[in-house]
């Protein structure tokens, strides 16, 4: 009996600790990237640059290398990989990526299999196809937005992402 009570107390204590941990984990999840993999869909983001190399035959070829330091005028290829690590299909999957500060979107560079791609020119408030996006020029007239005006890119995945399913979306931006 005494053992039972002790065990119960211990279990309660563990439960309390566990819920505290869960709460903490939840807060961390909200606060950023460290525990990004905790959701049903994981996102993995990488940045690459093209590097020119000359092979043994003297032929120049380009290859992608991980981006670290960048200089103005350089293009960076961003790749976001989404994976459904949960046990159920994910519906209405929408991936949004801001065009980073100090960078400009490179026209026609966004790709993603089985996705519909739209852009925002108002900080992610609204999204539309390139021909539907308007900006106000210096003279106050509305003109069609250019790639450099885009603030966000959005990929709407067609259909569900099945459990274990994954895909990638990409875009290129140039350092201002």
């Amino acid at each position: 009996m005494t053992d039972m009570m002790r065990r119960e107390k211990l279990m309660n204590s563990l439960a309390t600790t566990f819920s505290k941990c869960a709460l903490l984990a939840g807060l961390l999840l909200l606060s950023g990237s460290a525990l990004a993999q905790q959701g049903t869909i994981q996102l993995e983001h990488k940045a690459e640059q093209w590097e020119s190399v000359t092979d043994d035959n003297g032929i120049e070829q380009t290859r992608l290398v991980e981006a670290a330091g960048v200089v103005p005028g350089e293009e960076v290829l961003f790749t976001v990989t989404y994976t459904n690590v949960g046990g159920q299909a994910a519906e209405a999957v929408v991936i949004t990526n801001p065009v980073p500060d100090h960078m400009s979107y490179v026209n026609n560079s966004a790709t993603g299999d089985n996705t519909s791609i739209t852009f925002s020119v108002d900080g992610g408030e609204t999204f539309g196809a390139p021909q539907d996006l308007l900006v106000t020029d210096a003279l106050g007239a509305e003109t069609q937005a250019a790639a450099k005006d885009y603030s966000h890119i959005r990929w709407v995945v067609d259909g569900d992402v099945a459990a274990g399913g994954s895909g990638t979306v990409k875009f290129t931006a140039v350092v201002d």
Binding site: A36, L43, H45, V70
Partner: peptide, 25 residues
């Protein structure tokens, strides 16, 4: 640069963000 995803599982909306990439000029 941080990407975000929104989705629904069994009708419950959820969101997740990616790792944040930092490129130094």
């Amino acid at each position: 640069n941080t990407a975000a995803v929104s989705y629904e599982v069994g009708g419950t909306p959820q969101t997740t963000t990616s790792n944040t990439l930092t490129l130094t000029v």
